[in-house]
C-alpha cells in the first residue's frame, strides 16, 4: 500500500463513476445559465434605478452569484464519490483493500480536491462571461477579465470549489446516504440566502460568518465594509471543512463498515 497506489485507486474509482462527471457538466450549465440570468436581472434593475443608484451600480455584483448554485452541484460531486460506495456496497471492498481508514479518506479527499481545483476557475469564468455579456448586451456597465479583482476571484474559485467538494466528502462519510447528505449539504450551503428571514443581528452574523457565505467572499471583487474579505472568508470555510473531515475520519474509523 503506497500513497501513489492509493491515489491511483481513488482516481480510477472517481473516473469510472459517470454521475460525478455528469454533475460537473451540470455545474457548468448552471454557472452559465444562472450567470446570464443574474446579469439580465441586474441590467433590468439598473434600467429602472434612480441616477444615484445607477452611479453606485457595481457590475461585479452579478458576476459570480451563480457560483453558490453551481457549488451545490460541486459539493454533490464530493458526496457521491463517497455515498456511491455505500449504496453499492463497494465501501466494504474499499476498506478491505485499505484497512487504514484515515488513508482511505485522505486519498479520496485528495482526488476530489484535485479534480475540482481546475473545475472552479472554469465555472467562475463561465459565470463571469455569461453575466457580463448579459449586462453589456443591454448597454449596462460591465467588467472585463482584466479589471482589478476579477482575476483574483477567478483564481480563488479553485479553492472554493475544492473546499465545497471536500465538504461533500465529509458529509458523505458522516451520513452515508446520497439523498440525506446531498439535502443537508444543499440546505447548509444555501442557508445564507434565507438570512432575510432572521432577526437583523443573526442575519448579519450569518451573511458574514456562515461558512458558505464567508467562502463566497472570494468572489467579492469589491468587498463591502464589515465583510471578511477573500482571504479570511476562505479561511473560515477551510477551517469548517477541515473540522468536518476530521469528524468524518473519526466516525469512519470507529464504525463497522
Amino acid at each position: 500500500m503506497t500513497a501513489l497506489g492509493l491515489l491511483r485507486s481513488e482516481r480510477t474509482k472517481f473516473r469510472t463513476l459517470r454521475a460525478t462527471v455528469r454533475l460537473l457538466a451540470g455545474a457548468l450549465l448552471v454557472a452559465g445559465t444562472y450567470g446570464f440570468l443574474f446579469g439580465t436581472a441586474a441590467a433590468r434593475d439598473y434600467k429602472a434605478a434612480s441616477a444615484a443608484a445607477k452611479a453606485a451600480f457595481d457590475p461585479a455584483g452579478a458576476a459570480f452569484r451563480a457560483m453558490l448554485l453551481a457549488g451545490v452541484l460541486v459539493s454533490a460531486v464530493g458526496v457521491l464519490a463517497v455515498t456511491a460506495e455505500y449504496a453499492t456496497g463497494t465501501i466494504r471492498a474499499g476498506v478491505t483493500a485499505v484497512p487504514r481508514r484515515a488513508f482511505l479518506v485522505a486519498a479520496k479527499a485528495a482526488v476530489v480536491a484535485l479534480v475540482l481545483l481546475p473545475a472552479g476557475p472554469l465555472l467562475a469564468l463561465t459565470s463571469f462571461v455569461a453575466s457580463q455579456t448579459a449586462l453589456a448586451a443591454r448597454g449596462v456597465p460591465s467588467l472585463a477579465l482584466g479589471d482589478p479583482g476579477v482575476a483574483g476571484a477567478v483564481a480563488g474559485s479553485a479553492l472554493f470549489a475544492a473546499l465545497l467538494g471536500l465538504y461533500g466528502v465529509a458529509l458523505g462519510f458522516l451520513l452515508r446516504r446520497s439523498a440525506g447528505a446531498i439535502c443537508l449539504a444543499t440546505f447548509l450551503l444555501l442557508l445564507p440566502g434565507m438570512a432575510a428571514l432572521l432577526p437583523p443581528g443573526a442575519a448579519r452574523w450569518v451573511v458574514t460568518w456562515w461558512p458558505s457565505a464567508a467562502g463566497a467572499q472570494v468572489f467579492a471583487v469589491h468587498p463591502g465594509a464589515g465583510a471578511l474579505g477573500p482571504l479570511a472568508g476562505t479561511g473560515v470555510l477551510a477551517a469548517t471543512v477541515l473540522a468536518l473531515l476530521l469528524a468524518a475520519v473519526a466516525v469512519f474509523r470507529r464504525r463497522d463498515a
Binding site: G5, L6, R8, S9, K13, T16, E85, T88, T90, T96
Partner: peptide, 27 residues
C-alpha cells in the same frame, strides 16, 4: 482474498475497472 457479497460491485463500473481500482490500491 475475500468474497463477502457478490452484489457489492458498482453496477455501472466496468468489470475491468472494478478490479483495476482494487489492484491499484495494493500496487
Amino acid at each position: 482474498g475475500a468474497l463477502l457479497d457478490a452484489h457489492a460491485v458498482h453496477p455501472r463500473r466496468r468489470a475491468y475497472d472494478h478490479l483495476l481500482w482494487l489492484a491499484q490500491s495494493n500496487d
